[in-house]
């Protein structure tokens, strides 16, 4: 059976096609030396992998992303490896391999999947924002007060003028836009 024929069977959800997916992709990958230990650690079975693959390929239509670069077997195997790695409860983030290069056959293949821990990223962004705000404070404390009153309490420029005894609403607006500009420029400069 050629890859094109197999692809057609898989795309149409045919038993014959998916039997081959099990035999050529899921079972061998689940039994490979690099996956066995991880699957045991993360409590994931070959049946789970098969389910995830079917969900992605047929449920989400990802089978249509196969471009024919490399073998269908290798392309599907990348997904299965990704499911195993993504089963790590300490690793958050999405794995996408739509842009994968043509496969290298064999166990020695070095597969790098794009992953990021969103929790860490969020924490780092928050810390960095605080750091920038402190720089703003050192530059001009009034900009910080205006910034807080605008973004945290949603006060109007009139209310801020009356609160902080700033000369005019346009002056309030100017201070606010300068605070935003400073923070944006500092972010760009240091990232």
């Amino acid at each position: 059976m050629t890859d094109e024929e197999w692809l057609k069977l898989v795309r149409e959800g045919e038993d014959a096609g998916w039997k081959l997916v099990w035999e050529r992709v899921v079972e061998p990958e689940a039994g490979s030396s690099r996956s066995v230990g991880l699957m045991r650690r993360y409590s994931i079975t070959a049946g789970d992998l098969m389910g995830m693959l079917y969900e992605d390929m047929i449920g989400r239509g990802k089978i249509n992303l196969f471009r024919g670069e490399g073998s269908l077997e290798g392309w599907l195997r990348r997904y299965v490896r990704g499911y195993i790695l993504n089963a790590n409860p300490n690793q958050h983030g999405e794995i996408s391999i739509e842009g994968a290069h043509p496969d290298n056959e064999g166990e020695q293949e070095a597969l790098v999947l794009p992953t990021e821990d969103k929790e860490i990223l969020r924490g780092e962004t928050w810390r960095f924002t605080h750091w920038i705000f402190r720089k703003l404070w050192n530059t001009d404390p009034v900009r910080c007060y205006v910034h807080v009153l605008k973004t945290r309490y949603f006060l109007s420029s009139e209310e801020i003028r009356d609160f902080l005894e700033i000369s005019s609403t346009s002056n309030v607006d100017q201070i606010y836009s300068r605070s935003i500009k400073f923070m944006r420029e500092t972010w760009v400069k240091h990232v």
Partner: peptide
Amino acid sequence: IEGLRAERIWLHREGRESVPGGLTF
């Protein structure tokens, strides 16, 4: 309001290092 433009904010505690601070979210 009178002191708004001053950066200087410190906490002094007996037997401890004095530590400056600033506004945050």
